[in-house]
Every structure is written in structure tokens, then in C-alpha cells.
């Protein structure tokens, strides 16, 4: 029981104090569970972070679920996930109740018009940052540019084509390119 409570409270604390989303939360999780509590080895934590980034869903939720499971099984993962999301649920639910009233104030509405532009800027700069970090292989550049051009063009012409398809197609292309490469290598091997 104490184990679950400890897990829940620690995750609650992390959920309450991380601003700036997934990557910021990974640093906090590492500090808490690797350095302070020593529940998880450094190597395993790096695996957790890699898995959390590679699977769908919010990174923070993914890492909390994984750490909770490692520490205390299925119930532990449920407790950990609940703990990490509870603070934001309560805060956002409270905000949602009076947000419209708040926005009906003229100056607040003006402020949010500025903020909307800022959010577009933040998303763009997050994209540019990810672009810089991406390895500039022909494969990556092809996928990025095809996705970018298709999505902008289709939205301009108001054709609906779900983001889900882009994800699934790109993943499949990745697998096909890998298999083709493997077949080619084997052929070379047979010849020599």
C-alpha cells in the first residue's frame, strides 16, 4: 500500500510541476526516479525515454506508465498514470469553466489575439528545431518534404486526408525501404 501511495504522490508532484510538456518532464522523471529514489537504473531509464518518444501518446504519460509498471506491476502503472495526469485535469477543468467569460473581456480578447500568433510561432519554431535535429539523409528529406507539401496543398484545396494516413504511409515506406535494402544486400552477398 505504501509503495502505491509513494508512487502516486511522486507522480502527482511531477504532474503538478512540469511545464513545457514531454521533454521537460523526462528530465524531472530522471531526477526523481534515477538520481533520488534509485528505482530505475540509468540505462533502463534511457530505454524508457526512447520507448516513450517512439510510441503514440504523450511522452509524460508513457514514461509514467512504464515506470509504474516496473515498480509495482499493472496496478502500479495505473496509479502512476493517474497521478501524473490528475493535476492537469483538475487545473484545465477549472479553467474551462470560466474561460469564455474571461475571454469576453475586451482587453483579454486582444491579448489572446496576440497569443494566438505566438502559438503559431512556437509550433513553427518547434518544427524548425526538430528539422535541424533530423539527420539529413535522402530518405528523411524526401519524407519531410512530401508530407509538408501534400499537407499544405491538400488543406489549401480543402481536401480532407487524415494525419493518421500520413503516419501509417510513412511508417510503411520506412519498412519497405528497409526490406528492399536487405534484399539488395543479400543478393550482393549471393553474387560474391
Amino acid at each position: 500500500m505504501k509503495k502505491y501511495l509513494n508512487l502516486f504522490l511522486t507522480m502527482l508532484k511531477i504532474g503538478l510541476f512540469t511545464f513545457g510538456g514531454g521533454y521537460a518532464m523526462i528530465a524531472l522523471l530522471e531526477n526523481e526516479f534515477v538520481s533520488k529514489k534509485r528505482w530505475i537504473e540509468k540505462d533502463e531509464f534511457l530505454d524508457v525515454a526512447a520507448i516513450a518518444e517512439s510510441t503514440p501518446g504523450p511522452i509524460a504519460i508513457n514514461s509514467a506508465t512504464y515506470i509504474g509498471y516496473k515498480k509495482a506491476g499493472v496496478l502500479g502503472s495505473a496509479v502512476a498514470t493517474l497521478g501524473v495526469m490528475l493535476p492537469s485535469f483538475v487545473i484545465i477543468y477549472a479553467i474551462s469553466l470560466f474561460f469564455d467569460t474571461f475571454l469576453s473581456l475586451t482587453y483579454v480578447a486582444y491579448a489572446f489575439k496576440g497569443i494566438q500568433i505566438c502559438v503559431v510561432y512556437l509550433i513553427l519554431s518547434a518544427g524548425v528545431k526538430m528539422l535541424k535535429q533530423t539527420e539529413k539523409s535522402i530518405f528523411n528529406i524526401m519524407i519531410i518534404s512530401v508530407t509538408l507539401v501534400c499537407m499544405v496543398a491538400l488543406s489549401v484545396f480543402a481536401v480532407s486526408f487524415s494525419t493518421i494516413f500520413y503516419i501509417l504511409i510513412s511508417g510503411t515506406v520506412g519498412v519497405v525501404v528497409y526490406l528492399l535494402g536487405k534484399i539488395r544486400k543479400e543478393k550482393k552477398h549471393d553474387l560474391s
Binding site: I144, V152, T163, I167, S170, G174, V175
Partner: peptide, 22 residues
């Protein structure tokens, strides 16, 4: 290989989203 295809796709999606939002 699957994730290797998705990773650049997400970069393209974010950039495209920012452009259409702008």
C-alpha cells in the same frame, strides 16, 4: 524501420500545421 519512417513524417506534419495555421 517503421519508426524511422514516422519520425521525419512528424517533422513534416508540424511544419505543415504551423504553415496552415499561419
Amino acid at each position: 524501420a517503421f519508426l524511422g519512417g514516422i519520425r521525419p513524417c512528424v517533422v513534416g506534419l508540424i511544419l505543415a500545421t504551423a504553415i496552415t495555421m499561419f
